Computed example of a mutant assay.
Amino acid sequence: MFNGTIDYASGISFLLIVIPATYRLLHPLIQAKINTEKNAQTKQEMALADHYAQVAVAEMAVMANLSKADRKNEAVRFLMEKMLQRGFAVSDGTAHATVEAAYQDYKHQMGGDIHTIQTPTHVAADPDVSVPGGDLND
């Protein structure tokens, strides 16, 4: 009978030591996995926001009747609306920054600010310069 009591006591002691030790060992690993999943989801959300911002900026580029501020506000509204439709909440500051980054990217890829109406500059031909192969008026 004394033997059985020691077996129960040693079993309970073993569990009382092993469970907290296992928790201490596995908790950082589980926490790292949770953080990795959150980071992956955040990266996906930001990639989707970048895509919607690029779409919005391209759409707003053809709307010459809107001011620059109106175009930006409309692009931000479009981005936030599309993200909410997908179930993601984007802060106002993040939406503004994402749209601004997409605008700068769009502006530099297109070789200038095509959002503003540009007038061509007329250059008069220099009458003293001759063109090889004939006259320009032919």
Results as ranks from 00 to 15, higher is better:
residue 27 H to M: 15
residue 9 A to S: 07
residue 133 G to V: 00
residue 104 Q to S: 15
residue 59 E to G: 05
residue 6 I to V: 08
residue 111 G to L: 00
residue 58 A to W: 01
residue 134 G to C: 01
residue 87 G to N: 00
residue 23 Y to T: 14
residue 101 A to Q: 11
residue 84 L to Q: 12
residue 72 K to V: 10
residue 13 S to R: 12
residue 127 P to Y: 08
residue 70 D to M: 00
residue 30 I to L: 13
residue 102 A to C: 04
residue 75 A to R: 00
residue 17 I to R: 02
residue 41 Q to Y: 10
residue 22 T to E: 01
residue 113 D to V: 03
residue 124 A to L: 09
residue 70 D to H: 04
residue 62 V to N: 12
residue 97 A to R: 11
residue 40 A to C: 11
residue 131 V to A: 04
residue 75 A to Q: 02
residue 66 L to R: 08
residue 114 I to D: 06
residue 47 A to Q: 09
residue 120 P to G: 07
residue 115 H to D: 14
residue 95 A to K: 04
residue 44 Q to M: 13
residue 65 N to T: 13
residue 6 I to D: 05
residue 37 E to T: 12
residue 118 Q to M: 10
residue 29 L to A: 08
residue 39 N to P: 01
residue 4 G to T: 09
residue 67 S to D: 00
residue 128 D to N: 11
residue 133 G to S: 03
residue 82 K to A: 06
residue 95 A to L: 03
residue 24 R to P: 07
residue 18 V to N: 05
residue 102 A to L: 00
residue 53 A to N: 05
residue 99 V to T: 02
residue 72 K to F: 05
residue 43 K to H: 10
residue 32 A to C: 06
residue 80 M to T: 08
residue 119 T to M: 10
residue 113 D to M: 02
residue 82 K to Y: 01
residue 66 L to Y: 13
residue 109 Q to S: 14
residue 131 V to F: 06
residue 26 L to D: 02
residue 99 V to R: 02
residue 101 A to G: 04
residue 55 V to H: 05
residue 85 Q to F: 05
residue 10 S to V: 08
residue 14 F to V: 02
residue 5 T to V: 07
residue 85 Q to A: 09
residue 15 L to P: 02
residue 125 A to M: 09
residue 88 F to C: 05
residue 40 A to F: 09
residue 32 A to F: 06
residue 128 D to A: 11
residue 127 P to V: 13
residue 1 M to E: 08
residue 112 G to Q: 02
residue 30 I to E: 07
residue 103 Y to C: 03
residue 128 D to S: 13
residue 29 L to N: 04
residue 79 L to R: 00
residue 94 T to H: 15
residue 29 L to V: 15
residue 112 G to D: 01
residue 96 H to P: 06
residue 58 A to D: 13
residue 122 H to T: 14
residue 11 G to F: 14
residue 28 P to Y: 02
residue 135 D to I: 06
residue 68 K to F: 14
residue 39 N to S: 15
residue 121 T to R: 06
residue 23 Y to I: 15
residue 126 D to V: 05
residue 112 G to F: 00
residue 69 A to R: 07
residue 77 R to I: 09
residue 6 I to Y: 07
residue 40 A to T: 13
residue 40 A to K: 10
residue 18 V to F: 14
residue 86 R to I: 08
residue 65 N to V: 13
residue 35 N to P: 07
residue 117 I to R: 07
residue 113 D to E: 05
residue 89 A to R: 07
residue 43 K to A: 15
residue 45 E to G: 15
residue 89 A to D: 10
residue 21 A to C: 04
residue 32 A to E: 15
residue 130 S to C: 04
residue 125 A to D: 12
residue 53 A to E: 00
residue 18 V to P: 00
residue 126 D to P: 01
residue 28 P to E: 05
residue 92 D to L: 10
residue 111 G to K: 05
residue 53 A to S: 12
residue 90 V to A: 02
residue 61 A to K: 04
residue 24 R to H: 14
residue 22 T to H: 03
residue 108 H to C: 03
residue 66 L to A: 01
residue 45 E to S: 15
residue 99 V to W: 03
residue 131 V to R: 03
residue 50 D to N: 11
residue 38 K to I: 15
residue 6 I to H: 06
residue 17 I to S: 04
residue 2 F to N: 08
residue 114 I to K: 10
residue 57 V to N: 01
residue 47 A to S: 12
residue 80 M to Q: 11
residue 109 Q to N: 14
residue 118 Q to A: 09
residue 41 Q to G: 08
residue 42 T to L: 15
residue 90 V to Y: 00
residue 9 A to F: 08
residue 59 E to N: 13
residue 99 V to C: 00
residue 92 D to F: 10
residue 86 R to L: 14
